[in-house]
Design a protein around this nucleic acid. Structure first.
Lengths: 357, 357
DNA sequence: TGCATTAGATCAGTCGCGAAG
DNA sequence: GCTTCGCGACTGATCTAATGC
């Protein structure tokens, strides 16, 4: 049932029905007519068409979520958690949100596909994804900028000032490598995601930098790529630990990869944290239930989603771009313990004063 | 940029641009004009408006996902997993999908809100949710039926034949209570969700029925309500186990509640499965990483989502309603072990031949 | 006659303006 | 002058029918 069919049924004009819909308390309609309309509407057959409304109002009350990746969105904790925050804010303001299809290809191609039929949305939230490189992310942001449309960027490294963005920073106290070092670990392996992902690249850079500042060179041999997946992480850890017995700690870039690391370590007959310490990232629900409970870096993802939505409303209101910074936090549980000194092979940096790091 | 602005820019009519868009190989446009259009389109400024397309085509290429609950959708494993399947099928057919906002209230009110502005979508997927009762679910389905619109029902008990529905059945071999019984357990507690949820009600009914058929009456004292949340489950299990030491096994209606049960059991100084066996439901990623690894009922949720989407396309194509049945499967790990006979208080049913159950 | 192009109606709401009583 | 109501233009893409050369 549409506004016009309702009007026809009552023998009145569509304008009158519209007027009532817009404000049932309006004085512009007689009580009798109101009653007629009300009666019919209460049957509940009217369903307004948001597409027609969008066209007429030049406003859609809808936001498009752009996640340029080929795998299902909702397997990613980052996506689901942040969407919870986004949903809260959007629904509160009566906004709907939409996921646009694509025909596959790389991150750039996907976004182009999605944008092809993306006219008329009030705003956009663009995700950085595991399989887009920094260059692709930049290109995607530029594409969106070209359309001069309100948008917010999520899950990407810090970009230019004129881009609305929610960023999660890791303070020193939440840096897992530093924490492990303070516990006496010197032989730390990094369980990274995919080599193209900026957060992996950034972590690797920080990893090298950390040891460089201590005057030690670390090779790339202790960097593993688990593609943010449990099973791949498991086999990579198995492989590295089998040939490199010196490692006393592993830093994983996601809790789900930590699940795989746990399996591999146990399979090799090693104990966490006695032989190997593990630190995860995300603080997933199950982290405290792992054996031992996983020490992990909590990322405030729900809050990040919320802030992204809030920022988007600001942008849609015409505010000038800004960044919102949130911080991660180290949740200390039992999977990381002091290194057994005899195990430490990093003697050459033993004398460093950790306070200066 | 719209079709009309492109046309204006080139000094041609919008129809010509449209004709090119519809079929770039068309013979109805001269090569010169084609070249002009092509050049401008390659700049990539054109973004078709799906709302206008919907209006003109009387087809939206969009599906609305209706999840009548007040909490964020993406914290629920059922939602996220099934959405992965839905996404796969929809995107493959170039369909987008939408989440409609509501102003809160009960499941009925939420759906009404969502449907108020739901005209013009090609199809709908309606979820049964944890906080809707069977009556509410039925009412919601009826509401949707009233509009004579293609829709599929997910995560609900079996309904009338004329409703498209994906249903997950539990064969005897995947029934956790039966399995525990075969292991010698007689004092089994049920960690249910919320009392209104049909799946909880159904499980409770089956629980009582199972023991009734054995000629034993079970009271409701061993039924706990964890609201599908880890923390609530933890405190409920703590409460029951503290006062009822006879229990040797717990069946949980979700893996996340099993996480809470594990915590509670360990807190009481009991061992799984030595003192208490636990069986979960969902087979979440972390289930195999729990200590001990969780025996659980795997629900093929991604597949359910896929089938729901496939069924919806059938319905949108005018096919008559049907049901798709999938089955759950018991994933045996280590959290459920044979009951220690001295612990069993259910002596009165010891002599029953389990094969007849 | 055929080729290239275009005018204008349509979809379902929105809303300015005006008209009848 | 006031209340009550309706006409018709508009949104952007689609598509039929028709025009000009």
């Amino acid at each position: 049932m549409t506004v016009k069919t309702i009007a026809k049924k009552l023998g009145i004009s569509h304008t009158t029905v519209y007027l009532y819909l817009k404000d049932p308390e309006t004085k512009r309609i007689s009580p009798q007519t109101k009653k007629k309309i009300k009666l019919l509407l209460e049957q509940g057959y009217l369903r307004l068409d948001p597409h027609a409304q969008t066209l007429a109002r030049k406003k859609s009350h809808a936001v498009a979520i752009l996640i340029p990746m080929n795998v299902p969105y909702f397997h990613s904790v980052i996506v689901t958690e942040s969407l919870c925050g986004i949903q809260q804010v959007l629904f509160q303001k009566r906004y709907r949100f939409v996921f646009l299809p694509s025909q596959g290809g790389d991150s750039l191609q996907i976004l182009k596909d999605q944008l092809k039929h993306s006219g008329g949305y009030d705003g956009y939230i663009l995700y950085g994804t595991r399989d887009s490189s920094m260059e692709e992310m930049r290109a995607n942001v530029e594409t969106l900028q070209k359309y001069r449309v309100p948008f917010v960027v999520l899950n990407m490294p810090e970009l230019e000032d004129d881009i609305n963005q929610v960023i999660c920073q890791t303070p020193n106290a939440a840096d897992p490598i530093r924490y492990l070092f303070q516990l006496g670990h010197r032989d730390i392996a990094l369980l990274a995601g995919s080599s193209r992902a900026p957060d992996t690249q950034q972590s690797i850079q920080q990893y090298f930098l950390f040891f460089q500042r201590l005057g030690v060179e670390r090779s790339a041999e202790r960097i593993m790529y688990g593609n943010y997946e449990k099973v791949i992480a498991r086999s990579e850890v198995l492989k590295l630990l089998s040939k490199d017995r010196g490692i006393t700690a592993i830093v994983s870039l996601s809790d789900s990869m930590a699940l795989g690391a746990y399996e591999a370590i146990k399979e090799l007959g090693l104990k966490i944290p006695d032989h190997i310490s593990v630190i995860g990232k995300d603080d997933a629900t199950f982290a405290s239930n792992m054996c031992p409970p996983l020490t992990t870096v909590r990322i405030p993802m729900v809050e990040m989603g919320k802030q992204a939505a809030i920022l988007l409303f600001e942008a849609m209101g015409g505010a000038k771009p800004r960044k919102i910074y949130l911080t991660s936090e180290l949740v200390i549980r039992e999977s990381a313990a002091p290194a057994i000194s005899t195990k430490s092979k990093g003697g050459e940096i033993e004398k460093v004063n950790i306070l200066t790091i």
